[in-house]
């Protein structure tokens, strides 16, 4: 007991050290609170200071991230300073991020975007990529614009296993209507409240599933659940190589619920300039469904990192 007291009293020097350490902590914390420690990460502090940096975002699935990476390298090639904020989430989230200035640019799918921005889905008579593009121009969120769209298409699909297809003799989504009451559908959680999702399926095709399982956006969870029978119908992207590998069958969509889905850059107008739009237009002109599918397979199947796949793609297409 006495020792402890002595120890305390005699250790003025170490107390001083402690106080200094405490002071340092306070300063560090104050810096942390006041001037954002991740300043280069956020652009929260004003934004004007970093007006030249283009923040590129992506949705939470590999294809979106791969194209975003390609955009990033294209812009870097033009000497534009970019910052990557990939894997943000579903459209509901990243559109908000675009509007609040967290990101400036990201790859979009024209039909899905149109459908998301119009109440009750795309207007009648809109189905070709050009019609979708034109319709989109009227409804884009304020302060954003789209650049030229590419020929590359990646549609949302409803996909089943070969066994399910044979069992119910399904060829199109229409065939699902009478049997959907026995089937479980799986997709990203956002699918249940999207028009290009359960709502449109019910309105346009009269399809109501027995159950909906929220999984992921056309990723391994959905594929896995399809193949192990947890779900019978899955929302899979048409460019996904898993369709071929797993012998899956894509159901036709005669009513065009899932519209033309051409990939195009969506950008905040304040960040757009001639150099940026020229560079991205040149890139989009080279992007096709085929070369995108091949590049994506390198990421999804061969597990190469998207940065080197993107680089290889740009080099092969004379863009780098």
């Amino acid at each position: 007991m006495k020792n402890r007291l002595e120890g305390t009293m005699m250790n003025r020097r170490s107390m001083l050290g402690l106080a200094l350490a405490g002071g340092a902590t306070l300063t560090a914390a104050a810096c942390g609170g006041g001037e954002d420690p991740l300043a280069q990460e956020t652009a929260d502090s004003g934004g004007a200071a970093e007006a030249s940096t283009v923040v590129i975002g992506s949705a939470n699935f590999p294809e979106s991230e791969l194209i975003a990476e390609m955009y990033a390298q294209v812009l870097e090639g033009e000497g534009v300073e970019v910052q990557r904020k990939f894997n943000i989430g579903a459209r509901e989230v990243y559109l908000k991020a675009l509007q609040d200035g967290s990101i400036d640019l990201l790859p979009e799918y024209n039909g899905a975007l149109l459908s998301a921005l119009v109440d009750g889905g795309a207007p009648e008579g809109v189905s070709t990529p050009e019609q979708v593009y034109d319709a989109l121009q009227d409804v884009l969120p304020e302060g954003t614009e789209t650049l030229q769209q590419s020929a590359a298409e990646d549609k949302d699909t409803l996909t089943v296993t070969a066994a399910t297809q044979a069992k119910y003799s399904l060829t199109s989504i229409e065939d699902l209507a009478p049997v959907a009451g026995e089937l479980v559908c799986g997709a990203g959680p956002e699918f249940q409240e999207r028009y290009q999702g359960l709502i449109g399926l019910e309105e346009q095709y009269g399809v109501t599933f027995k159950e909906f399982r929220p999984l992921d956006a056309g990723g391994p969870l959905t594929i896995g659940a399809l193949t192990d029978g947890t779900i019978q119908v899955g929302n899979v992207f048409s460019t996904d190589s898993a369709i071929e590998t797993n012998d899956l069958v894509v159901l036709q969509d005669p009513k065009n619920l899932f519209l033309a889905q051409n990939i195009l850059p969506l950008i905040r107008s304040s960040k757009n300039d001639q150099a940026i739009s020229d560079a991205l237009d040149a890139f989009s002109a080279k992007l096709t469904t085929e070369n995108l599918t091949q590049a994506l397979a390198k990421v999804q199947v061969d597990k190469q990192d998207s940065a080197s796949v993107a680089k290889e793609f740009l080099t092969a297409n004379g863009l780098a």
Binding site: N60, K85, F86, N87, G89, P220, L221, G224
Partner: peptide, 18 residues
């Protein structure tokens, strides 16, 4: 899960790519 997670990005990436 919101795109800001340090090493967590490796978890979401791995899950998305199996």
């Amino acid at each position: 899960l919101l795109g800001v997670g340090g090493l967590g990005a490796l978890f979401t990436r791995g899950l998305q790519l199996a």
